[in-house]
Design a protein around this nucleic acid. Sequence first.
RNA 1: GCGGGUGUGGCGAAGGGGUUAUCGCGCCUGGUUGUGGCCCAGGAGAUCGUGGGUUCAAUUCCCACCACUCGCCCCA
Length: 420
Amino acid sequence: MNPIKRIQGMQDILPEEWRYWNYVLDKGHELARLYGFERLDIPIMEKHELFERGIGTTADFFVQKEMYTIEEKKGAITLRPEFTAGVMRAYIQNGMSSWTQPVKLYLIGPIFRRERPQAGRFRQHHQFNCEILGEDDPAADVEVMMLALNLYRELGYKGLSFQLNSTGCKTCRPAYVEKLRDYLSQYVEQLGATDQERLTKNPLRVLDSKDKNVQPLLEDAPHLADHLCEDCATHFTDVQTMLQVLDAPYTINFRIVRGMDYYEKTVFEVLAQGIGAQSAVCGGGRYNLAPEIGGSSLPGVGFGSGIERIILGLKEAGIEPPAVPQPTVMIAHFGGETKVAAVKLAFELRQLGIGTRVAFARGKRSLKSQMREANNREVSYVVLLGEDELARGEVVVRPMDDRPQTTLPYADLVAYLTAD
RNA sequence: GCGGGUGUGGCGAAGGGGUUAUCGCGCCUGGUUGUGGCCCAGGAGAUCGUGGGUUCAAUUCCCACCACUCGCCCCA
């Protein structure tokens, strides 16, 4: 029988990994609260149509990333490949427009994309996601950006900066896209097959091309930032002004064009080292996608950050999170009556908040073996309950460091254990 | 979808056409009638990824497949 193995691209998160996870998640919760974001959870599956309409079928993301979709009698359902569309659905469905605006939400959970896995990229990964809904103030853009930046800073990342761009809006983008198309059309011959296809379907994406032959052509390409309408231009300037005041380093990168169709105005990424060939730990921007999924116009801004990638970066930088604390006591016994007493004592200690393990054994088990287990588990004390001790109402307490062991009345045990 | 790399006890590795497949870590037992770490002795644990081919003989050579992994693309 071949052992059954994990599905490709999916991970087990083992106990030793959890100290990293807890470190990151605790900081995420803490910052979210500090910035006034409230937690939202949504289902990991939605109707396929939500993503189809929300993400946009011309988006590379939608076209190339296979989603995990199940055909059901009532229509196709899909494991979420991102959070934003589901958040918008939840906003509309739960009538959040009647709440005090803006609504600030954060989410933590798994995301599924059927890509070929590699370092820093998985088919199931987890994101920490923050969204501000119902607000078009550029200060909101800056707030989510700073939340992300401070998350990484407080975790211990160094040398962080934003890659920033504006993708304009429905008013100014079409005119720019035509200019870009005209410009690029001169070089059709030199474009690769995918870039040629993009030129017709979504010319903006050519700016993001990794094709080394195409990159030189982009040197003199028109920049969207120079063709923004007044509203978008002001917005872009305001964001930059605030980032400067906050001493947040950023680089304007006209090639940042994100993969989802719904972005407008601000788009940004935060790059990090040490996550394989991947570089973005965080991507986000401003959008207005409620109309696509059947709601009224609603501005939003937010980011998603890959938790696995944050952790890879931490490891690369040699940042050590605190260890998960272990129980401090292990109770050893000699079976029979003494085991029953050990089990009882363990529950009493736990009631008092003292982390306790009991040595398990179906039959006889040597004290040596129990001591070895206690040593491996790094408990601070072994409490020994033998026949004699039980009869006399005593316990032997054996500190696992250099201190001598002592025999105590049962009643004095807690005082001894909590003394230091 | 396309390329590269790797598959040998639980984990990490070495090896090599033929006899009992090696080492380290981990695990178990004993040395200590009821006392861990260090040391010593012993022990359990492997269809050498799967299938086929070559050969008197394959875990070793060849082919295919599968899995894992890294990269392209794209993304968190």
